[in-house]
Amino acid sequence: MGKRIPAFCPWNGYGGYRGAKSGKAKKLEQSANAQVLITSYPLIQREADIYQSEPFDVLILDEAQAIKNQASKTAQAVRSLQKASAFALTGTPIENRLEELYSIFNTLLPGVLGTKKAFKTLENEEISKRVRPFILRRMKKDVLTELPEKDEQVQYTNLTDDQKKLYVAQVNRLAKDVDSAIEGGQFQEQRMQILAGLTKLRQICCHPQLVLPDESYKSGKFDRLLEYVEEGIASGRRMVIFSQFTSMLSMIRAAFDERGWLYHYLDGKTPAKERLALTERFNEGEHSLFLVSMKAGGTGLNLTGGDTVILFDTWWNPAVEQQAADRVHRFGQENNVQVIKLITSGTIEEKMLEMQEQKKALVEEVIQPGEQQLKSLRPEDVKELLSV
């Protein structure tokens, strides 16, 4: 971000605060002559006492969904900062539930939405009315009129025969567990085990070897991905492939290595400096493939050197998938972008897709599309996910 400031404000000095060294508190004196201080949420949380002692004229929170959980240490640390005014920038002010919007507003304008208890009783229309004067919402199509088109499509794949047998067995096993939990009044207590079972179903859709690594299985979706990539390379496309499972990315890497396909790779373990270098090299034309972990690379990356996004597996939150696609379809993109979501027919992935669409409408009433939040899954929702 610091590189962009001189371009817009050449008169404005800026400083970056990287944190205390050797465990000793370091004041912000190193940036005393700067008018803009750039830091991070982890640093604010870790060294809150240092930041609390410094009054700021303006606080700008980029990717403000980082403070969506009002009870988190990060949100508490940010709220403790002294500021004359504050702004929040985010493409997803609501990711999981309406209370996340409350957390952001409670940081910017404490009291405007009342107490949290009172907020929970408000109708969506009333919430929308209260926040509307303070929100400037800009759609990409309105502000980036020169941006090339984005073609989004869902491509359905089928389970292989062995894959389907494994999937059905897991569905039956999980359905019995869910029924038992409901009958015994233990659904809430066994929520984590049930969610783990749902994750296993999603992994089987990706590739059975994610759950049975020592067995030999085929995956319809995995085979289709390799076919698509081969076709894309032949036609000169530059592809960015996202998956939430790093174990799945490892399997894709192995297949690419076997075929001699060159690629870049980024996940949560990739150092910050290396992340930047990888994206710059890709954007300059090095390699036509980029494998990215959804959580690690879904935000903060500029991958305009690509023209195709492949979402290998489905995420509960469509906003996360949208942000991943926007790594490629963003300012600076000169080519039309194709976004492909791979969905396994007749499985939990198809059910999740339906559930996402149903839940989008609710949050859209207030401000922004949202997600089916895992913690709000009701017993009937889980049973619907397991229906085949």
Rank of each mutant, 00 (worst) to 15 (best):
E95P: 12
K21P: 08
L144E: 08
P148T: 02
A7N: 04
S345E: 15
A254F: 10
Y102A: 01
G305P: 12
Q45P: 14
S216E: 14
Q373W: 06
S387Q: 09
S53P: 08
Y17A: 06
G15L: 04
P148H: 00
D177G: 10
V292K: 02
E146K: 06
F119H: 01
E100L: 06
F222W: 07
E152M: 02
F87R: 04
R237Y: 01
I44P: 10
P133D: 03
P55R: 15
L278W: 00
L278Q: 09
E284F: 04
L81Y: 05
I204M: 12
V240M: 03
A181W: 07
L377W: 01
E125P: 12
L226M: 10
T74Q: 09
Q368I: 14
H287Y: 06
D214E: 13
D142M: 12
K375E: 14
Q333Y: 01
P379A: 00
I252S: 11
E350L: 11
V363N: 11
K165Q: 12
I127Q: 05
E146F: 00
Q358P: 10
Y17M: 10
T145C: 00
T92A: 00
Q35T: 09
L113A: 03
G306K: 04
F87P: 09
V131F: 01
Q82G: 07
S250L: 05
K360V: 09
L311W: 07
E227W: 08
G220L: 13
S40K: 13
V178M: 03
Q170N: 07
L98W: 00
T314N: 09
W315V: 03
G305A: 01
E357P: 15
V143W: 00
A64R: 08
P379H: 06
Q45N: 13
I348P: 15
T115L: 02
E227D: 11
M1C: 08
E215Y: 13
E125R: 08
L144D: 05
L266W: 06
D223T: 14
Q153P: 15
Q52A: 10
L28H: 07
L212M: 12
V339D: 03
K73M: 10
Q338P: 13
E334D: 08
E365I: 13
V366Q: 03
